[in-house]
Simulated scan of single mutants.
Amino acid sequence: MSGLGISVVICVYTEDRWADILAAVASVRAQSHPALETLVVVDHNPELQDRLEREYKETDEVRVVPNAGPRGLSAGRNTGIAASYGEVIAFLDDDATAERDWLRRFADPYSDPRVLAVGGRAEPVWSSGRRPAWFPEEFDWVVGCSYRGLPPGRVRVRNILGGNASFRRSAFDIVGGFATGIGRDGSKRPMGGEETDLCIRLTRARPDAILLTDDRAVIHHRVPEAREHFAYFRTRTYAEGLSKALVARSVGTDKGLESERHYAGRVLPAGVARGLRDQFLARPGGARRAGAIVAGVLTAAGGYVVGSVRARRNGTTFAVVPIEADGGGAE
């Protein structure tokens, strides 16, 4: 669909990522399928907003807008959806760059009206220059990237990954926006799961909906040095357990943990076996990778138990509001 209008939303929150933000926007502006517009949504940081407005004041295709909701990624994305014009809205992390054909790979499947979401592959760019020897590929989701165990090619999935994603605008008309109360909200705890929740709600409301990933829609996601350490790995896996508990409470355990059962039952045991084999063959880091997988499972499971207890005790609820277009909607 060469004429498909795609709005790109990049949510930002800190000047510490200034160079990353500029690189992300530049990668969108260099697409082979030109973006209709790029919206940079600033999460309650007036200084950063002012600086970005000065940077792009003479650039018609880049708009800088403040997050109109509570602090956090979900409200920022909802703000971008409401302010955008495209028939499709794509999301790019503020510390990632997209390959030249990223939007073209997204656009092609939307020729089928049943396709409501298309995601892609995120490759890690390690600040140290190489993957830490102990870090298992099965856990690359810890640093916001695609992980070993995801199906290759263009395939149908339960949910797409939020840092490299696109949705048909009508999807938000059907189920509203991203739920606040799930995912990152400006706190130090690295939560997630808001895109999983949205995708499950979408396929429940529209059983005929098709959600795809295409591993040719590639972004390169920078991994800061602080996230290359086991301390962050442990914190993030625990937070993922908390997040999964919230998602399961929102959409039910059957769908909320459907993909995770396959991942934990097949992908991770194979990863442990691979690590032990590498150790036997004297390859660097084999035993440590196997140990990290076991530790990741245990901390995620611990987070899930704690999150489930808290959700039941506190009666946790999530806000899902309709998206009211203030950008004009699809052209």
Results as ranks from 00 to 15, higher is better:
Gly193Gln: 13
Gly163Gln: 01
Asn314Asp: 15
Ala82Phe: 03
Glu37Lys: 00
Glu258Asp: 15
Leu4Arg: 12
Gly315Asn: 13
Gly119Gln: 04
Gly193His: 10
Gly129Thr: 13
Lys244Ser: 10
Gly86Asp: 00
Pro190Ala: 08
Leu268His: 00
Asp140Phe: 05
Lys255His: 15
Val115Cys: 02
Gly275Cys: 09
His262Gly: 08
Val115Gln: 04
Asp43Gln: 11
Pro34Gly: 01
Asp254Tyr: 09
Cys145Ser: 00
Tyr13Gln: 03
Ala117Met: 09
Ser146Trp: 02
Glu47Pro: 09
Leu103Ser: 08
Tyr304His: 14
Arg104Asn: 10
Gln31Thr: 07
Glu55Trp: 03
Thr237Asp: 12
Thr180Tyr: 05
Val267Trp: 08
Ala330Arg: 11
Ala319Val: 06
Arg77Asp: 07
Ala239Cys: 07
Thr97Gly: 01
Trp102Val: 00
Thr59Leu: 01
Ala226Arg: 13
Gly176Cys: 13
Arg266Gly: 00
Arg104Ile: 00
Ala287Val: 11
Val125Pro: 08
Gly177Arg: 05
Ile10Lys: 02
Val223Trp: 03
Ala133Cys: 02
Ala292Thr: 03
Leu116Tyr: 08
Leu276Glu: 11
Val142Asp: 04
Ala330Met: 08
Val218Ile: 15
Val65Gln: 00
Asp94Glu: 04
Gly3Val: 13
Val143Tyr: 00
Pro34Phe: 00
Ala248Lys: 07
Val25Cys: 12
Ala165Asp: 07
Val247Met: 05
Ser259Glu: 10
Leu276Asn: 04
Glu15Ser: 14
Val320Gly: 07
Glu58Pro: 02
Ala30Asn: 14
Tyr85Met: 15
Leu48Cys: 13
Thr38Cys: 11
Ala205Gln: 10
Arg310Gln: 13
Tyr147Ile: 00
Ala205Leu: 03
Ser32Tyr: 06
Tyr110Met: 00
Pro70Val: 14
Asn78Tyr: 04
Ala217Asn: 06
Gly69Asp: 10
Tyr110Cys: 08
Leu103Arg: 06
Val143Leu: 04
His44Ile: 13
Asp20Met: 03
Ala90Gln: 09
Arg105Ala: 07
Glu87Asn: 11
Val247Trp: 04
Ala26Leu: 11
Glu53Ser: 01
Val40His: 04
Gly275Pro: 04
Arg154Pro: 15
